[in-house]
Simulated scan of single mutants.
Amino acid sequence: MVKLSVVGILAGLDEEALTDVERHINRKNFSAGAQMIEPEADSSDVYLILSGRVRIVNYSLSGREITLEEIGAGGCVGQLSAIDGQPRSACVFAVDDTEVAILSPANFETVVKSHPSVGWNVIRELARIVRTSTRRIVDVSTLGANERVVAEIMRRAQQVSDDTGAAVLSPVPVHSEIAGRVSTSRETVARVMGSLGRKGLVNKVDNGLHVPDVRRLEEFLSESIH
């Protein structure tokens, strides 16, 4: 059984506190591809991701799927509706087989009030969401589609770069997922990735997409913008 200690908002809780949280949750498994949360649904449960990975998506008026974020083990989804009681603002799918711990709104409130550090961690997570959303708005408003693709690859590489300035994105980013995330087409993503490959800025390796020099990719993006 996966321990609750993997969950970011529960970081810092001792065993006694985690045991208390355990009494308030229900564990559930979702198969890859299963829909966990429907948009506009009235449910307000909070899902703590114990293993696997989920994708948060929304849809434009034309029906285009827009990927807002992918969250792996340790993350959580659904906290906004639990806090304000409003309908769900997005749809959540399991990307891989995923195990979650579910907190009802009442139990979520109980846990936050019983363990103040959880409340602070939730605030920090909400701040991260706001910053991410702001960055996406700026990108869509100021960058062309090609530049948004490069910026997305660059940011992912920055998060996992090593001491030499290189990075491996594993698994290889799926074109449709990137397209949904930066509001463009799969064809545009394929074209940009092909161009980056020809320039030696990225290349596929056995364990993922290799970015030999993240700084060089940053410089390329800066030159493209100007």
Rank of each mutant, 00 (worst) to 15 (best):
S60A: 14
T19Q: 14
N29C: 10
P116N: 09
I178Q: 04
V54A: 01
A151E: 09
V57I: 08
A82H: 06
L126M: 15
L13Y: 02
I137Y: 14
G72E: 02
S31F: 13
R124K: 14
S114P: 01
R186H: 01
R148F: 06
C76K: 04
R135F: 13
K113Y: 11
E187T: 11
A179V: 05
A145F: 02
S31N: 13
C76H: 13
K3Y: 09
A90N: 08
P173G: 08
L103R: 05
L143W: 00
G33F: 02
S117N: 10
S185V: 07
I178V: 15
H226F: 09
T110Q: 11
E65L: 10
Q86C: 10
A82C: 10
E15R: 12
I25W: 00
P87Y: 03
T164C: 06
S89H: 12
M154E: 13
S133R: 14
R215L: 08
Q86P: 04
E219R: 14
V192D: 03
L4E: 04
D97R: 05
A167K: 03
H175E: 11
G180A: 06
V211W: 02
G75Q: 04
A167V: 07
S117R: 13
S114M: 08
A106V: 11
E16P: 01
E109C: 08
L209H: 00
A73F: 05
V77M: 10
E223L: 09
V57R: 01
M193Q: 05
V172D: 04
D97F: 02
T134R: 14
L4W: 07
D139C: 09
H210S: 03
D20Q: 12
H24G: 04
G180K: 02
D20F: 15
N146R: 15
E147H: 09
S141N: 11
T188S: 14
M36D: 06
L68M: 11
H226K: 12
R186L: 00
I66R: 07
V150E: 06
E125R: 14
L10S: 06
R186M: 10
L68F: 07
A90G: 04
I56T: 14
S44R: 15
N203P: 03
L126C: 15
S60Y: 03
V100I: 10
S43N: 12
R136A: 13
V211S: 05
A73N: 05
